Simulated assay, not measured.
Amino acid sequence: MIKVRKAEMEKIAPLFSGIQDSMVIACLQGYMGDAFVRSWESPEAALIISGEYSFFGGRADSKDGIYLAEHFFDADPGDESVAIFDEDEPEWERILMDQAHNHPVPVTRFGIVQKDYDFDRDLLRQYSQTVPDGFLLKAFDEDIYCQAMKEAWSREFCETFASADDFLSRGFGFAVLDNGLLVSGASTMTVYDGGAELQVATRESHRCRGLAMACAAATVLKCVEMGIRPCWDAANLISRSMALKLGYEYKGEYMTVHMHR
């Protein structure tokens, strides 16, 4: 498997034309994530890995596509990944599900329309001020970054960045603290020219208190103020509901494949 250099991303960009995802854009622009091909001579398929997500572009039934599916974990250092592919190339689902050694599981996600929104800033401010008494809403700093990277539930906030300095210089987010402990947050998990992909999560012991909503609203509001498109994709119905309350539009369900080493 060949890793694509940043200067060569243009060659594989057409293979991902059907995937409107900010993490794909960020990789193709050379900001974050890694891309791979089987062969550099006229590749018919390519793979992008960004944190816990992977994107398969091009022809699934080509030699390149089958090879990338079969040898996925040769490229991904992690133990699991959410595989996303072009909805107009449904053959990817079959190819990925055929890889029994990757322990594939089909999982439905809920797509949010990717566009420039005219968010209601007053509404976002109202949501960001709904943190219950006893909790503190605070912008991400080095301490919050370090806390996030120590636990599985919060690692996606920052894991695509090289370091705390990298995150704090290129990304941002807001967290809710309970006596100094990170219990909920929202961050720009991926950044690219003019946009970012948001990650929202809450510690299991602190869910159903509106903490994530406050963090998400504060992060979206900052994106709006900075002229950045805050992209959102929903892994579950709760995330979809939050997105609609914030002013996003629902696109519909789509299928992914979860793979485990």
Results as ranks from 00 to 15, higher is better:
residue 108 T to E: 11
residue 74 D to C: 06
residue 119 F to Q: 00
residue 118 D to Y: 05
residue 34 D to Y: 06
residue 112 I to D: 02
residue 31 Y to I: 04
residue 48 I to Q: 00
residue 75 A to H: 12
residue 22 S to Y: 13
residue 92 W to F: 05
residue 44 E to P: 04
residue 119 F to K: 01
residue 49 I to C: 13
residue 97 M to Q: 14
residue 76 D to L: 09
residue 135 F to T: 03
residue 56 F to A: 14
residue 91 E to F: 00
residue 52 E to K: 03
residue 49 I to P: 07
residue 49 I to R: 05
residue 24 V to M: 03
residue 115 K to W: 05
residue 79 D to H: 12
residue 36 F to M: 10
residue 107 V to F: 12
residue 107 V to S: 09
residue 86 D to E: 11
residue 26 A to M: 04
residue 99 Q to L: 08
residue 102 N to R: 08
residue 82 V to G: 01
residue 96 L to S: 05
residue 113 V to I: 15
residue 92 W to A: 01
residue 129 Q to N: 13
residue 120 D to W: 06
residue 126 Q to E: 12
residue 70 E to G: 04
residue 27 C to A: 15
residue 55 F to C: 01
residue 40 W to Y: 05
residue 99 Q to M: 13
residue 132 P to G: 09
residue 109 R to V: 04
residue 40 W to T: 13
residue 71 H to V: 03
residue 70 E to R: 15
residue 50 S to P: 02
residue 100 A to S: 13
residue 101 H to L: 10
residue 45 A to L: 01
residue 130 T to F: 02
residue 100 A to F: 04
residue 52 E to G: 14
residue 50 S to T: 07
residue 43 P to W: 01
residue 131 V to P: 11
residue 125 R to F: 11
residue 93 E to V: 00
residue 135 F to R: 00
residue 127 Y to K: 14
residue 125 R to H: 12
residue 82 V to T: 14
residue 101 H to Q: 13
residue 111 G to I: 02
residue 122 D to E: 15
residue 49 I to M: 12
residue 56 F to E: 02
residue 117 Y to E: 03
residue 116 D to V: 02
residue 36 F to Y: 15
residue 122 D to A: 13
residue 92 W to G: 01
residue 135 F to A: 03
residue 49 I to K: 06
residue 45 A to H: 05
residue 73 F to H: 07
residue 48 I to P: 03
residue 26 A to R: 05
residue 37 V to M: 10
residue 72 F to M: 03
residue 33 G to W: 04
residue 81 S to Y: 03
residue 61 D to S: 10
residue 51 G to I: 14
residue 89 E to I: 09
residue 29 Q to T: 00
residue 100 A to R: 13
residue 136 L to V: 15
residue 75 A to Y: 05
residue 135 F to M: 14
residue 66 I to P: 00
residue 38 R to T: 09
residue 117 Y to L: 08
residue 96 L to H: 10
residue 39 S to Y: 06
residue 128 S to P: 10
residue 128 S to C: 08
residue 26 A to W: 09
residue 127 Y to R: 15
residue 57 G to D: 11
residue 135 F to I: 04
residue 135 F to D: 00
residue 101 H to F: 07
residue 93 E to T: 05
residue 27 C to D: 10
residue 118 D to R: 11
residue 59 R to K: 13
residue 109 R to S: 08
residue 134 G to K: 01
residue 90 P to Q: 11
residue 22 S to E: 11
residue 55 F to P: 01
residue 123 L to E: 03
